[in-house]
Amino acid sequence: MATFTIVAGARPNFMKIAPIIHQLIKKQQEGISVKFRLVHTGQHYDKKMSGDFFEQLNIPEPDANLGGGGGTQAEQTASIMVAFEKELLENRPDLVLVVGDVTSTLSCSIAAKKLQIDVAHVEGGIRSGDLTMPEEINRMVTDSITDHFFTTSEIANSNLRKSGFAEEKIHYVGNTMIDTLMAQMPRFQKPAGEIFENLESGQYFVMTMHRPANVDQEHKLKAMIDAILEGTKGLPIIFPVHPRTAKNLQSLGIDAPNLHMTDPLGYLEFNYLVKNAKGVITDSGGITEEASVMNVPCVTLRDNTERAETIHLGTNELVGTDPVKLKPYLEKIMQGDWKQYQGIPLWDGKTAERIVDILLASYPHN
């Protein structure tokens, strides 16, 4: 019997693992001898940041929760490693599957490899080239000890080849986040609450900001929000606020009637808003993928991106972190003069099928 341990810890991870779990359950129902354990590292411990996802994405409750949330980067890494090593010693699988680039991805990869357990990395090979981002270090270290890379783009494949990884380890499969997006789109729902009742399709913006470069310096955060308010010409801006950003915003005293700061939203509600927005303003990577596939204009407030395909073939533009540079991009969105989604190869909703087929071909399951 093939046995796999699937790791998730932070909000984006759940979207990436959901279709893989659905495929494994399907294989079990077809009588294929495969078993998996779902391990939640507890990296995101706020219910809105993770709890709702099990229900909305129709995935089972985790078999284990490691309770690894809180603390510094080093404390969180260490805490998850210690707890995950114990989990693996008690429930040793053939392979550990990690996704994305969060602290949990790094910690669990190291713990697995030190116990001589194979690691598969979903979203392997993506790079921003920016070592000031903790995520970039997580990607590089995880990839350096990975046995199977499941990649989202030819750019990621090229990055891995340049690093000297063998071709047979690189599996170009597509993007599981898009599997989830396509499967869940019919279930998107308008969020409850007065703010959302009067929103008109195509007549509001969605914004997310959480990266330290944008939110940790008050004067920079205020300048960016002032530029956004000016460029969006009074249209409503829905801003689900990340906990770290909320703290920094409190002291800024920004008072704009069209800026609606909300609690983090569930997956179905948030993507309903993105799908119907005039545009998206973000510093997140995953949202640029979803906005592109839904053909919604998107601007990224970063100086680099690990998802260049969203710029070449998607609806994303890399603006940088200088508020002055944002103005012409918002003008183009307001005028309806934005590029269209060109289609990204293998982002077709069938990525998880390809991943599970490769795993079952690689590990005995009779």
Rank of each mutant, 00 (worst) to 15 (best):
H312I: 09
G286Y: 09
E317N: 13
G320S: 11
L318G: 05
L301W: 05
T288I: 06
V299G: 03
V319L: 07
P323Y: 07
V299E: 07
K327Y: 08
S284M: 08
D303Y: 03
T310C: 05
I281S: 08
L313P: 00
A291R: 00
G314Q: 01
E306K: 00
V274W: 00
A291E: 06
L330Y: 07
V296I: 15
N316D: 12
H312S: 15
A308H: 05
N276G: 10
N295L: 09
D303R: 09
Y329Q: 11
E289F: 09
N304T: 15
E317A: 13
D283L: 12
M294C: 01
E309Y: 09
E290F: 05
G320A: 12
T321S: 13
V280F: 01
D303S: 13
Y329T: 06
R302C: 09
A277E: 05
N304E: 15
K325P: 07
C298L: 04
T321L: 08
S284T: 13
N316T: 12
T288V: 06
N295R: 09
I287R: 00
L301K: 01
E309L: 03
P328Q: 10
E331A: 15
T300P: 00
E289W: 07
L318M: 13
Y329W: 15
I311W: 00
K327D: 11
V274N: 05
P297W: 05
E331N: 14
K325T: 15
D283R: 12
G320I: 09
N295W: 03
E317S: 14
N276R: 15
E306Q: 05
M334A: 14
L313G: 01
V296Q: 00
S284A: 15
T310G: 02
G279P: 06
C298M: 04
L313Y: 14
V274M: 05
V274Q: 06
I311K: 00
R307F: 03
L326C: 08
V324N: 14
C298I: 03
C298S: 10
M334F: 08
T300V: 14
V324F: 12
L301C: 08
H312V: 08
E290D: 11
